[in-house]
Simulated scan of single mutants.
Amino acid sequence: MITNLYLVRHAHSTYTPEELTRPLSDQGFRDVDKVTALLEDKSIEHVLSSPYLRAFQTVEGIATLLDTEIKLVEDLKERTLSRTAVDDFPYAIEKVWTNPNFSWEGGESNLSAQQRGIKAIQKIIKDYHGKNVAIGTHGNIMVLIMNYFDKQYGFAFWKQLEMPAIYQLSFDGEHYMHTTRILD
């Protein structure tokens, strides 16, 4: 049986330094309707999300349409780049993508964040075998997950990724088949 995971990068958010409670912006809330409409015909049976508010809010429309609850998955949260704010974000993010084992103080390397994300995805594949699942998540962790299965999804891909974005990862049992762009 085929399992389809619809990875949904959250819509645009209003920046706050607090990751957990950062909400969607007005534009982000408008984009929730677009996400909902694109997922509406995908026979979604379950909705999961990172515990971060902006990811949850992005998939809330499809959950409401399906009259289902959103299950939070801690390991789908965004990667921690550093314990403190970085002075030069473009440099800091490129450095971790260039060296998968490198991490800034208190942050996750690409490898450790990817392993966390893949562990969550493997559990989802087992728990929701043969189902279509919408998953609210974040750009870096989403691309790290996609990169695990297909190396074409890397730093250059992440840099051009829009908010929101939806990519379908399809699995036959636990075997990765392909990735399909739904919205970007």
Rank of each mutant, 00 (worst) to 15 (best):
I44G: 02
T179A: 04
I70G: 05
E162Q: 04
W97E: 07
L20C: 01
E69D: 09
D31F: 06
V47W: 12
T64F: 00
E105P: 09
T21H: 14
Q122L: 14
A55H: 09
Y167K: 12
G136I: 04
G173A: 07
S170F: 02
E74I: 15
D87L: 12
P23M: 02
G106H: 07
K119R: 12
L169Y: 01
L161C: 11
E162G: 02
R116V: 12
V143Q: 07
D67H: 13
K77A: 00
V59A: 11
L38R: 15
P100Y: 09
L24H: 15
R22M: 11
D31G: 08
G154K: 06
D127V: 12
I135W: 01
I145H: 02
F157I: 07
T3L: 01
T14D: 05
P23D: 06
I141M: 06
Y6F: 10
P100T: 10
D67R: 12
R22T: 14
I166G: 06
M177E: 15
I124L: 06
E162D: 08
H178L: 07
K34F: 11
F29R: 14
A120Q: 07
T68N: 01
D31W: 02
I44N: 01
D88V: 05
E105D: 15
K42D: 03
H12S: 10
Y167H: 13
I166L: 06
T21I: 13
E19Y: 03
R9L: 00
G28T: 07
K77G: 03
T137D: 06
G139C: 12
N147M: 00
T68E: 05
H46L: 14
E60F: 08
